[in-house]
Write a protein that binds this DNA or RNA. Structure first.
Lengths: 336, 336
DNA sequence: TTGTAGGCGTTATCAT
DNA sequence: ATGATAACGCCTACAA
């Protein structure tokens, strides 16, 4: 079934059918009704590939991430997807690509989206475009929405890491914790982004505002944000400073849960002896005992905002690249 | 840049370029080299939409699931995706669709994949096609791979639930547990599938093989497999039978973790007073205390197998629908 | 080995 | 209000 078959059945030309399909030109009430009824009857859908060839573009938003099987990533995707459906329409305008952390894959995906005009805007999560790609996208007038990062001249949406850290540490301070450890990721590597640095900034600011002294010994650096690293971190921290009575684990909930497990082994009571706050609010955070107090990132919302911004940018409603910062939220549970 | 531009630059016809691109016909070493160098130089990629229009089909495998932000689902997807990349190729042949549990969305997605010839085979996870759709797909010769289910005349891949349950309960029995409770999902509803029933079958079989009596009072039915339901289940179970000393929670790890939490509140020691085995092996299972013994489903593997089967079926290497059953594995940790 | 011509299912221009 | 015709970028049967 193609547009000509429909036209024949309705006794009109395929041009007329096309016009009706796309709400263009003027069509008499009668023919429209007739054509639509035939379309309905035969369950006809125009061939999307042919449309794209004819239009020279795809009415799509591309979403490129490093993978899918990550809670953070898949939740962002669902947020974006949610926005991609207008009421009553059930076929999305969002196509997903994953680089699997492979540099070659990243290059090929980004170049093909561009060359084949597979999308009118591209959202990137944990995927950083190089200068050349940015230049080419700019030339082709395809906007890039960068998530969890910031670069000159392109749109970005990110969480206010400094604020999240500030709130967490302030809460610990308010609970009269005196020696607060900070577990964070590595600083100064391009691939890692500015996140660990920003969180440390929030930590320091909270300390300063409460007129507490900053002590370098209370910082432990971690690489992969894992459960195992969390366990080791507690030992390290304790070796540096015996009297630790609070920990802000800026390296994520999983790592924080490693700390909790090690504390249990060492018969350290949480929160009585040591209070802990994590970052991310992964599902398991509410399931451990005691449930983990943590900084929740509005992940779903980030996806929604990203899609909206992508559409607005593609349709020129948004003209100048802007940097959107979303506020994280401290979720108070049982570890403080 | 299109195929004619490349042809012009190489001083040949676009037909020649097309042949080189698709490895068809015979081309002299020299022209091939020349054309390829130009393609390389200009970073040319053929327009996929145009290809599809011309070929009348898309060389794609569609993956339709209810959502993305589920550990189970996104892991299956990653398994399939992994298989979708040949060595050295970085642009996948897997397109993702999500119904978001919406019946209308499901219908539209399935009908459009068919009508627009968006794929040569379709993998469905937690999405059950109705009779009409099956008929239409059959007519169009597009194979369906059903995951976690089984239907007449279509391919399917699923986990051996009965075996998983059997192993879990047998292990409990081997640890000299006398009264073993079973928490499972609802039985007899179409949407829910045969899973709860199969797991109960494994439970009963293990009991029988160990010459233990089956006691209906030891079964608790649960609806949504949630943490909260798990907490309630323990109360229910204890009300029916005080001497419960083992629980096989066939309603998933989350539910099992609810049971653990409630046990903690009631000062019931795990595993000393009551042993617990879950189902799924979600990430959190290894993070709680004590870490949860559970039945692990080979989820990633299921994705890999699904993609392979989809390709084989699309290319007629597989002709008769078959039902593949994968073995789950008991992961022994600390709750037994 | 190479190229000409026609077709795939759309959309768009411009007469009628 | 409607339709004839061309165009999009690709593939391919067949001719040279």
């Amino acid at each position: 079934m193609n547009i000509r078959d429909i036209a024949k059945l309705a006794g009109v030309s395929h041009t007329t059918v096309s016009k009706i399909l796309n709400n263009k030109g003027s069509i008499s009430k009668n023919t429209r009704k007739k054509v639509l009824s035939i379309i309905e009857k035969y369950n006809y859908y125009p061939n999307e590939s042919a449309r794209r060839v004819s239009l020279g573009r795809a009415e799509e938003i591309a979403f490129v991430s490093t993978r899918y099987a990550s809670n953070f990533i898949s939740t962002v995707i669902e947020g974006a997807e949610q926005k991609s459906y207008e009421p009553g329409k059930y076929f999305g305008k969002l196509s997903l690509y994953s680089t699997r952390g492979n540099e070659n894959a990243k290059k090929e995906i980004l170049i093909r989206i561009l060359r084949e005009r597979l999308a009118e805007a591209v959202i990137m999560l944990f995927v950083i475009p190089d200068k050349k790609i940015i230049r080419e996208y700019k030339k082709a007038d395809i906007p890039i929405i960068l998530l969890e990062g910031k670069m000159d001249g392109i749109y970005s949406i990110r969480v206010d890491n400094e604020k999240g850290a500030y709130d967490a540490v302030s809460y610990l301070l308010k609970n009269r914790r005196k020696k607060i450890g900070l577990i964070r990721g590595e600083i100064g590597y391009e691939e890692v982004g500015p996140t660990p640095f920003e969180r440390e900034k929030g930590y320091k600011k909270a300390l300063k505002d409460a007129e507490k002294e900053f002590n370098k010994k209370l910082i432990v650096e971690v690489r992969d944000y894992t459960f195992e690293e969390g366990k080791k971190s507690l030992d390290l921290l304790l070796k540096n400073e015996k009297k630790v009575d609070g920990i802000f684990c800026a390296a994520g909930d999983l790592c924080a849960m490693g700390i909790m497990e090690r504390a249990r082994e060492l018969k350290i009571k949480i929160p009585d002896d040591i209070a802990i706050i994590g970052f991310d609010d992964i599902k398991a955070a509410s399931l451990v005992h005691p449930p983990l107090t943590t900084v929740s990132q509005p992940v779903y919302e980030m996806g929604e905002k990203a899609f909206q911004l992508a559409v607005d940018a593609a349709e020129k409603r948004e003209k100048k690249p802007k940097d959107i910062v979303i506020e994280p939220k401290l979720i108070i549970r049982g570890t403080v």
